[in-house]
Design a binder for these strands. Structure first.
Lengths: 97, 97
DNA sequence: TAGATATTTAAATAATTATCTAAATATCTA
DNA sequence: TAGATATTTAGATAATTATTTAAATATCTA
């Protein structure tokens, strides 16, 4: 299975895409993120975990809070996937996904 | 709900991503596509339908066959979504998703 | 150390999605 | 028009995913 499978699955959920866009503006704690949704904290925690497993975000504890921030590396790889589709026939060789 | 929701959901499945990559190389009939998978034709038909609803592919009947081909428009919009994430803080205004 | 705050983990349930078999539709050809 | 081929649609089931409540863990502070 492609390494991009988890990130693609992670971004298929609108709540998680919104979280990503919030983190684009600034790093935030789990609690701050949860405040923006009509959803319990455990649900947001679950979504954050999926984003983390997909390596789309990084978490770091600072005291009582856990800060979440974007990890742009995998986003770059996803952009490459789309480029490969959008580009003319043939494209790069050795692509996995 | 964002207009990108369906395409994101559509691309979260590895079978559908593989179909997209096959169609990048050349247009194919539903039957040709199905031959590449360990899956029944109705299952592939279901996946093609999801890709079609997401406007990632176009279908056109030619005689007994139905040819599928890429519709790159939505891919472009998805690339823009990723650019917006990858770019520096702020980014373009008026983004919906 | 006890209590308060922040967050996650666990367990259950509801909702969504993928897959199959069987049947239907559309087209071609003899 | 009857039979063959290509594909989809319908209906059922299994698997996955999202969500909730309740409980657990980690950290801070009085």
């Amino acid at each position: 299975m492609s390494i991009l499978n988890m990130p693609f699955k992670a971004l298929s959920d609108p709540t998680r895409r919104k979280i990503i866009q919030m983190l684009k503006e600034r790093d935030m704690t789990a609690g701050e993120i949860a405040e923006h949704f009509n959803m319990t904290k455990p649900s947001i925690s679950h979504h954050l975990n999926i984003l983390k497993q997909a390596e789309l975000v990084i978490d770091e504890r600072k005291g009582q809070n856990i800060y979440y921030s974007l990890n742009t590396t995998v986003f770059q790889e996803m952009v490459n996937w789309f480029f490969n589709i959008t580009d003319k026939k043939g494209g790069s060789i050795g692509e996995e996904d």
